[in-house]
Computed example of a mutant assay.
Amino acid sequence: MHENRSTPDLIDSHAHLDDQAFAADREEVIDRAWRAGVGDMIVPGVDARSWPGIKALCARHSRLHPAFGLHPMFLHKHVPADVDALSSWLDEENVVAVGEIGLDFQVEGLDRDSQRQFFLRQLQLARQRDLPVIVHARGALEEVSLTLRRTGGLRGVVHSFSGSWQQAQHLWDIGFHLGIGGPVTYPRAQRLRRIVAQMPIDFLLLESDAPDQPDAAHRGERNEPGRIVDVLQCVAALRSESVAHVAAATSANARRLFALDRRNS
């Protein structure tokens, strides 16, 4: 395993490797990512039932790092006591973030007030523990940004960013990164591509969101962490910068945000 490894050493800041989509070949997927040049991978949780599996998976692989959180799309699975349980899970060794958390106003039937309550309580836990947050903000980016600013004392990444230049600027003004993955490779994503081309690279993270959001060349297929190499190449071309430069910069951003150097030592 792990032979003929490619460079550069990329970091996938968002991969749901615990997902059932990888049940049959999870180890092979991880190995393909390694050989493609992906080193560390952040594995965020979505509900309380996902946390034990993520903990066990990351315990078997030193370059996989757990994040625990309550995702708004799984609101029907959450109970208020899960936030109290999360507080204990965040004390686990090697936890790198609170996530995936946030708001989703696009999916019908998700009570917005309940989402807000779970989101705010988890932000408070992150601030208390000085942990970064991995934020989902679909159809709710404006409110998410305002909540992050009002709460204060936070840092993190807005995963799968799809907003405007002004919204992006508001986020990096408060120290938040933008998670960029497969959607940027689609030529029709003109607004996102313009933002990625011009934004400060210090706030850019690469992500797969595997098994979701594949790049344009793999549309309709199960996504894998190794394919962030295609995202990297697209981002480098959009910015007219070398692949090596973008790889080094985005990996340094992820290491700094998630304190990976300290955890890998």
Rank of each mutant, 00 (worst) to 15 (best):
Pro132Lys: 08
Pro66Tyr: 10
Asn253Val: 04
Leu257Met: 05
Arg129Ile: 05
Asp261Asn: 14
Leu146Trp: 08
His14Val: 05
Val246Asp: 04
Arg150Ile: 10
Phe176Ala: 11
Arg150Ala: 15
Asp215Pro: 11
Arg239Gln: 05
Asn223Gly: 00
Leu232Asn: 01
Gly102Ile: 07
Phe176Leu: 12
Leu192Thr: 06
Phe258Gly: 01
Trp165Phe: 13
Gly156Trp: 01
Ala248Asn: 12
Leu171Gly: 09
Gln167Trp: 07
His65Ile: 08
Ala81Glu: 15
Ala59Glu: 13
Asp209Met: 12
Ala33Thr: 01
Arg255Leu: 05
Val95Asp: 01
Gly53Cys: 04
Ser164Ile: 09
Gly102Asp: 10
Gln167Ile: 04
Phe105His: 13
His76Tyr: 12
Glu142Asp: 15
Gln106Pro: 01
Ala23Ile: 09
Arg255Tyr: 03
Arg263Thr: 12
Met1Tyr: 12
Phe258Cys: 01
Glu92Lys: 04
His218Asn: 13
Pro211Arg: 09
Val184Pro: 00
Leu232Ala: 07
Ser62Phe: 08
Lys77Met: 13
Phe119Asp: 00
Gln233Tyr: 01
Phe74His: 14
Leu192Ile: 05
Leu141Glu: 10
Leu171Thr: 08
Asn4Thr: 12
Gly156Arg: 11
Ser114Asp: 09
Gln115Ile: 09
Gly109Met: 04
Asp111Phe: 08
Ile42Asn: 03
His65Pro: 03
Arg149Trp: 07
Ile180Lys: 00
Gln122Val: 05
Val157Phe: 03
Ser87Phe: 04
Val231Phe: 00
Ile228Gly: 00
Pro225Thr: 02
Asn223Thr: 04
Arg5Asp: 02
Val158Cys: 06
Trp89Tyr: 14
Glu92Cys: 13
Val46Ile: 10
Glu224Tyr: 02
Tyr186Ile: 08
Arg5Phe: 06
Pro214Asp: 02
Asp18Met: 08
Val144Cys: 06
Leu141Asp: 00
Met199Ile: 15
Phe105Ser: 02
Gly182Met: 07
Ala140Glu: 04
Leu64His: 00
Glu241Cys: 14
His159Thr: 06
Arg49Val: 02
Asp212Gln: 09
Pro80Gln: 12
Leu204Met: 15
Arg222Gly: 02
Ser160Gly: 11
His218Arg: 15
Glu27Val: 03
Leu64Ser: 05
Gln124Glu: 15
Pro200Tyr: 07
Pro66Ile: 09
Glu100Arg: 07
Glu142Leu: 09
Gln124Phe: 03
Arg194Tyr: 08
Gln20Ala: 14
His170Pro: 01
His170Thr: 14
Leu17Val: 05
Ala56Ser: 13
Ala85Tyr: 06
Ala259Gly: 09
Val158Phe: 05
Ile30His: 02
Gln167Ala: 09
Asp31Glu: 15
Leu171Val: 11
Met199Ser: 12
Leu192Phe: 02
Gly102Lys: 09
Asp19Glu: 09
Glu108Lys: 15
Val96Ser: 00
His136Asn: 00
Gly69His: 11
Arg127Val: 01
Pro225Asn: 06
Asp12Phe: 03
Gly226Phe: 00
Arg262Asp: 11
Ala67Lys: 10
Ile174Tyr: 02
Trp34Ile: 13
Ile30Gln: 00
Ala140Arg: 01
Ser265Ile: 10
Trp51Arg: 08
Glu142Trp: 04
Arg5Gln: 11
Ala252Cys: 11
Pro183Ala: 14
Asp31Pro: 02
Ala81Cys: 07
Gly45Ser: 08
Arg222Tyr: 07
Ser114Gly: 04
Leu192His: 03
Trp34Glu: 06
Val46Asn: 00
Ala85Ile: 14
Gly37Val: 02
Arg26Val: 12
